[in-house]
Amino acid sequence: MNLSERDLVNYCKQNNAAAQRQLYQEHIQGILKLCLRYLDNKTDIEDIAQHTFEKAFNKISTFQIKGEGSLRAWLHRIAINECLMHIRKNKTFQLSFTDEEAWLEDKMDHSENDPEPVPAFELRQVLDCIRQLPDGYRTVLNLYVFDEMKHEEIAQTLGISLNTSKSQLSRARKLLKQLLNSTL
């Protein structure tokens, strides 16, 4: 059975086991990859993936499809929230610099609109360096670069100010570049 996204959602709303299985098979890789960026522990990654699908199947009745890719975006949003909740629960989430003046200092150094080109690295190297970043930096970088969130959304999601989000991203980039250069 290979259903379209709309049919898949409709069958899942009727608690169809085959449809749920298909949804799981189509999205489990993406969800695990997403969790891999936020979390280090394999067990945590498995747990978060499990919670994500459980929550998705429980809440799918409230989901309304808005076009192709909206189901994926919805599932990824649930996974991101679960990851952030997990990080907060374990009290490992600490923004490295919370003062907004730091962002202004960064602006003096280099503008976000004029980023320095980063030499090409293998994705594996990039991921390893991202996972070495402090939680605050890593979270903001993940949300901005890979999950394509805007600073307003990041600020709202993490409960921080807009300037703090910008500051975190700027410093995360700096540190990531240093880490990548150190691998050469």
Binding site: R21, Y24, Q25, I28, Q29, L32, K33, L36, K42, I45, E46, A49, Q50, F53, E54, F57, A120, L123, R124, V126, L127, V145, F146, E148
Partner: peptide, 27 residues
């Protein structure tokens, strides 16, 4: 560039081996 690479990558590229069948049974 990173985003495109990330989308194209697979789990085995990161040496993450998770038994998805077992996970499905848990779910």
């Amino acid at each position: 560039q990173w985003r495109e690479q990330w989308e194209a990558a697979e789990l085995k590229d990161f040496d993450l081996h998770i038994d998805t069948e077992n996970l499905w049974q848990k779910i």
